[in-house]
Amino acid sequence: MTKPLISIEALARRYPKHGGGETTVFENVWLPIEKGEFVCLIGHSGCGKTTILNVLAGLDQPSGGVVIVDGREISGPSLDRAVIFQGHSLLPWMTVMGNVAFAVTSRHPHWPKDKVRAHCQKYIDVVHLTGSEHKKPAELSGGMKQRVGIARALAIEPKMLLMDEPFSALDALTRGSLQDEVRRICTETEQTVFMITHDIDEAMLLADRIVLMTNGPEAKIAEIVENTLPKDRSRADVHKHANYYALRNHLLDFLVTRSKNFAVEIAAGAYDPRRPPVVRPGERAPAQPPPPIDAPRAVSA
């Protein structure tokens, strides 16, 4: 197996508790992410998903563990890891073009103006915002703003895309069409993506692997679910596939009951946080033992 693009190793985050002591939000989180892979992280509110994403983005420091990108430990934010924030976080005094261009000139400071423009236009077209280049964010709908955020992230051509519940603030129709767009763009460009979501259907449509986190505090990666739906799935026919309900029920079951009581499962079996069980719902014979998604890197420990 090739070396993963990103490797999360023994990551932990603790906060000082009121009146002494510490609360551990999560600990001993291990997760490799391959190049070109689309990984979704699902877990209940407060289990530390945003914290993990912020650590990946370099905006937050972990209390323990490391994130290794391309063989090097990350030390801060980087243009190689573009973030699509939960609130679109466009700069409201700039136009759509201005926002995208701000990102592009950050990546390519020496590009002439018209080259920057052309490059931005390409990505504005990709997210179907042609004609809205000169609008300010306040003049756009929620879905359009989110698409500008996506264009801004894509335009810097990052090695990896980090998305924190990018569609959660949108209505179902807009969300659906944006999911389709993101899926098209990401498969076309073989983009590596790490996305947080609350939405099972979204994860099933977009992700190659779905990472399930237990409830906090002391959240862990409980399981990694491989998407058993065909690669060429689309929103319109995904529910017709034979594995659809097996996969969906497995995820629902985890969120509704197992995420709370995972400690019991840990006590019962051989749970290894470095190699959380991998499941492929709907497939007759689950690969036994689970195929190692990656041999964890030998770290001095």
Binding site: L79, G87, S89, L91, S106
Partner: peptide
Amino acid sequence: EWLNVAATLEVGALRKAFMV
């Protein structure tokens, strides 16, 4: 969030001061 945008884009201190 705006500062985070500038941070993830690796915007320099002076550019951040004047552009953000």
